[in-house]
């Protein structure tokens, strides 16, 4: 019994050191060596200033920028979160109605039936950096008007920002809002 305990203890310690010290340190070294930007959070800069992470959405309210999906944590990443409301929830229905009203009021030139589904629903992480291409196109007129730009110019930027499914097969087409907004700023 004691012998079993001794052997088990030592094997446990050995495997703990291998998986808990050697492994993560090796991976961290490899990560920082091979993919330093990604390992550190894919931080994005504009005019020499860090303006955020490519993968973390930001709260946007200025009509001169493209806006993000609804978020249960309003894009404050600590912690990430979702509404976790079920489809029979009255709270969810009233939240969606409020979101629909918001998008209608701020985009009077667009038809109410055209509001894309992703703009009416909160994301799973609360930090979703993407919107669908339809959601981006929905906002073109409002952004162009706020910046006094030609809508066609803004539309061009949007089309350039659409990322297709990876390898043409995996996932959904998406638009990274931060990168799109940064490109918008660079226009001026």
């Amino acid at each position: 019994m004691l012998q079993t305990f001794k052997t088990t203890l030592l094997i446990f310690v050995a495997l703990t050191l291998v998986t808990g010290v050697l492994y993560p340190l090796a991976i961290t070294a490899a990560a920082l060596g091979l993919f330093p930007d990604q390992a550190r959070g894919s931080l994005v800069s504009a005019e020499g200033q860090v303006i955020g992470s490519k993968w973390i959405g930001q709260p946007t309210r200025d009509p001169r920028y493209f806006w993000m999906r609804p978020s249960a944590v309003d894009y404050a990443p600590l912690p990430s979160g979702a509404t976790n409301l079920g489809l029979t929830s009255e709270v969810l229905i009233s939240q969606m109605a409020a979101r629909a009203a918001f998008w209608r009021e701020t985009h009077p030139t667009q038809a109410a039936e055209d509001i894309p589904a992703d703009l009416l629903s909160a994301s799973a992480s609360g930090l979703d950096p993407h919107i669908s291409p339809a959601a981006a196109r929905f906002q073109i007129e409002r952004v162009a008007a706020a910046r006094q730009l030609d809508a066609a110019q803004v539309a061009e930027l949007v089309e350039a920002a659409i990322e297709p499914p990876q390898f043409g097969l995996l996932g959904q087409a998406r638009v990274n809002v931060l990168l799109l907004n940064r490109a918008l700023d660079a226009l001026e």
Binding site: I27, T28, A30, F35, Q38, S42, I51, G52, T60, R182
Partner: peptide
């Protein structure tokens, strides 16, 4: 793990990153 880092999963022992968003608010990236 290494393939995931190439795709953008973080792997660092540094502390959370404080950034200023496009609209001038502060955000802490874990």
């Amino acid at each position: 793990a290494v393939v995931l880092v190439s795709q953008g999963v973080v792997q660092t022992l540094a502390s959370y990153a404080e950034v200023t968003t496009l609209e001038g608010e502060s955000q802490e990236i874990p």
